[in-house]
């Protein structure tokens, strides 16, 4: 990996997830492609994986379930009741 840190990738990924919230389900593969398009050979798949892991561990994003596992902002699923 070149000068692109996992923190930077995590911020980029988060921006995509936030921008698409409520409009399009963003999947890990989408983030991989977007990061590859932006940074090319400077990063590898493992780096993007590490960035997603960081987002999940910090609770800034969660995995959604419907329509295939997607990466989403924390929310309440429609199915949930109290």
């Amino acid at each position: 990996m070149g000068d692109i840190s996992v923190d930077q990738l995590a911020e980029d990924c988060y921006a995509i997830v936030a921008e698409n919230a409520g409009q399009k389900k963003v999947k890990a593969g989408d983030l991989q492609k977007a990061m590859a398009a932006k940074y090319g050979d400077q990063i590898g798949r493992a780096d993007v994986k590490a960035a997603i892991k960081q987002l999940m561990d910090s609770g800034r994003t969660v995995y959604g379930y419907f329509g295939g596992s997607s990466i989403e902002l924390p929310h309440k699923e429609a199915a949930e009741n109290q």
Binding site: E11, D12, A15, I16, A18, E19, N20, K24, V26, D30, K33, A34, A36, A37, K38
Partner: peptide, 11 residues
């Protein structure tokens, strides 16, 4: 060729 994402990129 690998597909280019159609997702708008923010940052």
């Amino acid at each position: 060729e690998p597909e280019v994402t159609e997702i708008p990129f923010g940052g």
